[in-house]
């Protein structure tokens, strides 16, 4: 290759197929560019940049009875403001509205969040928690569908090959009318801060019986990839929502942080911070106050 970077703005998926077919160099897809443009300044450059930010076929939010489908190039500002989506999956819209700033959310996309695989990416724990399926259009024009863990494999690492493109994210709508969900994040300030820690929770909650039938909890920014907190889930499953549950939940969160990052400098901070985050989540989910056990006002 000559070292020059070529650009292309295809109008549809067929045109992308024609572009990548037989192209021997490295290909980058750009949508929002909020990660890629910085990478272009710093690292090795691709031979071809394909802009997909204006492709209508990749920008949509659809729902049927048992799933929500989201186009990979859908901007986070559209996700954050989507009322029907907020009613079905508040965990996703809450995460989208806490990413970066207005300027970032207007450009950054859900597919880009996956492809960048940044450990602090706010949508990553949510998408793992919701057990999403990721549709990828491969360079050989076949389409494959993979689970979150099969695509995001490490810090900044994915299983996507050169010329592979994420096209669609499908999220199953589990637990019917019992489905509740929420997202919480701690950054250095409320806006524009990359997450130090975030939590996504999805539950099957019987509000009449006040009982958590099933639950999935995933933490982000605590390792190279989002981490499912099965030990915390076990504390909640099958239980009534009350202060005793809150106490056990917060304790289990701290224990999970201790297990995840033993000896890390941030452990001392995160094992406490996660309790505040846990309290926020409970209050967000159940709209009532819980007291952190053993905390005086001064400590809180």
């Amino acid at each position: 290759m000559t070292g020059l970077v070529q650009s292309a703005t295809p109008g549809n998926l067929a045109e992308i197929g024609a572009l990548v077919d037989g192209f021997s160099g490295n290909i980058s897809y750009i949508a929002g560019g909020t990660d890629l443009v910085i990478a272009l300044e710093q690292g090795p450059r691709p031979d071809l940049i394909i802009d997909i930010s204006r492709m209508r076929a990749l920008n949509f939010i659809d729902a049927d009875v048992d799933a929500v489908h989201i186009g990979a190039a859908t901007p986070l500002s559209i996700l954050a403001e989507h009322r029907a989506l907020a009613a079905k999956l508040p965990v996703l819209t809450q995460a989208a509205e806490q990413v970066g700033s207005v300027q970032i959310r207007n450009r950054a996309t859900i597919g880009g969040n996956i492809a960048s695989a940044v450990p602090g990416g706010d949508l990553l724990p949510v998408l793992k928690c919701l057990d999403c399926r990721i549709e990828v259009l491969r360079r050989d024009k076949t389409t494959i569908t993979r689970a979150f863990d099969e695509v995001v494999t490490g810090s900044g690492e994915t299983s996507l090959g050169n010329g592979d493109m994420i096209t669609r994210i499908t999220i199953p709508l589990r637990f019917g009318a019992n489905r509740i969900s929420a997202f919480g994040k701690i950054g250095r300030r409320r806006e524009l801060a990359i997450a130090r820690l975030n939590l996504a929770l999805l539950a099957d909650y019987d509000s009449t019986a006040n009982r958590i039938n099933d639950v999935r909890i995933v933490a982000g920014a605590i390792g190279p990839v989002p981490l499912r907190l099965r030990s915390v889930e076990r504390q909640l499953r099958g239980r009534a929502v009350d202060q005793a549950l809150a106490d056990d939940f917060l304790q289990a969160l701290t224990a999970a942080v201790d297990t995840a990052i033993p000896g890390r400098i941030s452990q001392a901070y995160k094992r406490h911070a996660v309790m505040g985050l846990g309290l926020d989540l409970l209050q967000n989910l159940f709209a009532r106050e819980f007291t952190p056990a053993g905390w005086s006002k001064a400590q809180a």
Partner: peptide, 23 residues
């Protein structure tokens, strides 16, 4: 130059974006 400060903000179709992060 990395979308943190907002000094390069412009509107694209009336929407604010960081022009340092758009090609």
């Amino acid at each position: 130059g990395e979308g943190e400060c907002g000094a390069c903000t412009v509107l694209i179709d009336d929407q604010p974006v960081n022009s340092c992060l758009v090609l």
